[in-house]
Design a protein around this nucleic acid. Sequence first.
DNA 1: TTAACTCTGTGCGTCAGCGCACATATAGCT
DNA 2: AGCTATATGTGCGCTGACGCACAGAGTTAA
Lengths: 250, 250
Amino acid sequence: MPQSASLQHAAEPQHQPEHNHLLNALSEEVQQRLFPHLELVEMPLGKVLYESGDVLRYVYFPTDCIVSLLYVMENGSSAEISVVGFEGLVGVALFMGGESTTSRGIVQSAGSAYRLLGQRMKDEFNRHGELLHLMLRYSQALITQMAQTAVCNRHHSIEQQLCRWLLLSLDRLKNNHLVMTQELIANMLGVRREGVTEAAGRLHKKGVIDYSRGHIVITNRQKLEQLSCECYAVVKAETDRLLPLYTKTR
Amino acid sequence: MPQSASLQHAAEPQHQPEHNHLLNALSEEVQQRLFPHLELVEMPLGKVLYESGDVLRYVYFPTDCIVSLLYVMENGSSAEISVVGFEGLVGVALFMGGESTTSRGIVQSAGSAYRLLGQRMKDEFNRHGELLHLMLRYSQALITQMAQTAVCNRHHSIEQQLCRWLLLSLDRLKNNHLVMTQELIANMLGVRREGVTEAAGRLHKKGVIDYSRGHIVITNRQKLEQLSCECYAVVKAETDRLLPLYTKTR
DNA sequence: TTAACTCTGTGCGTCAGCGCACATATAGCT
DNA sequence: AGCTATATGTGCGCTGACGCACAGAGTTAA
């Protein structure tokens, strides 16, 4: 029923370490130490960076991809715990000391990232300089997002959650176009695919999104924010507070 | 309908810093630096340690109380994000760098705790010694618990969640007796009080718990674990892995 | 063109949890 | 002993989400 509007895409790939906000926030001194060890890697949709329990070999700094931290239950159903884009990094467990997590890291939106060998990361981290403090702040932002996910799962409708999810994704992309099937969104939200179909249909009727076979275009972001629960705004505000380095100020 | 069985209580108060597992895990050197600054404080039921957004003045190391990290929504409903007892500390935001969180810290089970002035905590933390690494590991355990809360909220029934919640509380107490109304549990789980009543009634019928007016006694812990979802076991296993110091090994 | 496949739409019946209303039961107080 | 607070039990209608089944619609490949 929903007609697809202009589903053009494009968006230049982001192939500079500085496109990741955490890397960008580091002083030149640290950058010079670290950047030579960064390795640019492709991040195709669906790629699994690590499984629950895996010892992490690398940390990943996304530039233009999005990674979901997904918990997969014993019976196979799943739920997204948090999402990471160019504002963050994947693999906090490495410097937290646990080396592994109970979640899976999986690419939700294709693009690329810079990866760094775990030991290098730990070496720099253990110099106890700015990297440590930056990582800790980022970790707190991540914690906030997880907490809010828990709240949202408890109290809000699929439509509200979909709005939140779209906004979180949108913030991590360069344009308003998402490559993502309703089936995948359902896996992320931990709900039925049909539920997403219905919610998406309603959002389309309200003139907020267009979509068609694995492509979603947000046409009215403001309205999307209105329809979302408070959860998006809370996470956004807290992330901005903890990591004001967002706006490339150096 | 449910007859109350033997609802005796008692359990000696725990008035030694070492009763908190994190404090206990520290070397004597660090303990000697830190312990003089610890202040024993009463933790009555319902006491609010901090509100969302408050700048934290102290970190709290529970000895025999339980503190809930609770998110309170704009409309007043709430959801517990995680729970802290003698295995942990309240106030990670202080050393993570954010100074405040979006959640509220509230005493869920009365007892006492040692508190430490934020600055003292940060001073020791910034010596970049064992305290730092211990705190990071604990933070990861906390993250795991939050993530699992999100999953549980999404997929499991009130009864399963109640089982998980009882087990988490039980692990942080010295006996199998809880002082807690169904109303309060409902606030923690973010569900209706009636829902808790029904679930508790079923658990009683199954011979797992006895309860009466604000008192709950677990009579069959093994069965409780069987009835719980996987979430409890996952958090337990991961916490034990990250903080094996549980069993006073020093 | 046809066929196979994937993605989306829709219509069931079912059920857990909700909101509300109100009936008990128990503890604590005077 | 009686009163009042608080805690718990129960019923009822409602709704959002579920599981299932299948129908269309678009895309790809032969």
